[in-house]
Amino acid sequence: MYNYLLFIHILSAVTAIAAVICYPIIMSSARTVGQTKFALSLLEKTAILPKLGGTLLLLTGLAIGFQETYLFREQWYVASIVVFFIILVIFARLLPVGNKQQLKLLQQTQGDDLPEAYRLSRRRSALLEAVAILAVFVSILLMVFKP
């Protein structure tokens, strides 16, 4: 059973991490109002990936922990769960709110130039994305090296 859980855990991590890394890549390529609206709608459609991958990641990680109960006494394991929740808050709550706000700003825009209010909101989202990517990196380090 452990190997099956580990396989699903790793597959879930790949799914969630790929989505996390793609967010800033997709958004940095948008240069006009039309492109940005498309990028935001694309992110809205792909938002299921970090949610699904993250949920499976948490469930399989905890299931592995319940099979190997000593893990709950390991600092790297507990730290991985804490880091996971940081990523979860960013991608399940903070970024979707920011994306909706940005889309609302773009709906009110005439022309194809991105308004300054959008750029400011986007900078906040980019900072959150950077924090999430750093958290993913720390999470991977914790799981691979188990310090």
Rank of each mutant, 00 (worst) to 15 (best):
S12M: 00
S12P: 04
S12A: 15
A13F: 11
V14W: 06
V14S: 05
T15E: 07
T15F: 09
T15V: 15
A16Y: 14
A16W: 15
A18G: 15
A18Y: 13
A19H: 14
V20E: 00
V20R: 00
Y23W: 10
Y23F: 13
P24D: 06
I25W: 11
I25D: 00
I26E: 10
I26D: 07
M27R: 12
S28K: 15
S28H: 14
R31D: 09
T32V: 02
T32D: 06
V33Y: 07
V33H: 06
G34K: 08
Q35I: 02
T36S: 14
T36L: 11
F38S: 03
A39R: 06
A39N: 05
S41V: 00
T46H: 03
I48T: 08
P50F: 04
P50G: 05
P50R: 07
L52G: 01
L56W: 08
L56R: 02
L62G: 08
L62R: 02
A63V: 09
G65F: 11
F66S: 06
Q67D: 03
L71K: 06
F72T: 05
F72H: 03
R73Y: 08
R73N: 15
E74V: 14
Q75G: 11
Q75P: 05
W76L: 14
W76Q: 13
V78N: 07
A79N: 08
I81Q: 02
V82R: 01
F85W: 09
F85D: 07
I86N: 05
I87N: 05
I87E: 09
I87K: 07
F91P: 01
F91W: 06
F91R: 00
A92I: 07
L94W: 12
P96E: 09
G98C: 05
K100R: 13
K100C: 00
Q102N: 14
L103F: 12
L103C: 01
K104R: 13
L106W: 08
L106T: 03
Q107M: 14
Q108I: 10
Q108N: 11
T109A: 12
Q110L: 14
D112V: 03
D113G: 02
L114W: 05
P115V: 04
E116I: 02
E116V: 09
A117P: 05
Y118A: 04
L120H: 14
S121K: 14
S121M: 12
S121W: 06
R124Y: 13
R124S: 11
R124Q: 15
S125H: 12
A126T: 15
A126P: 01
L127C: 00
E129V: 10
A130S: 13
V131K: 09
V131R: 08
A132T: 08
V136M: 06
F137L: 15
F137N: 03
F137P: 00
I140M: 08
L141G: 15
M143N: 13
V144W: 04
F145W: 14
K146S: 02
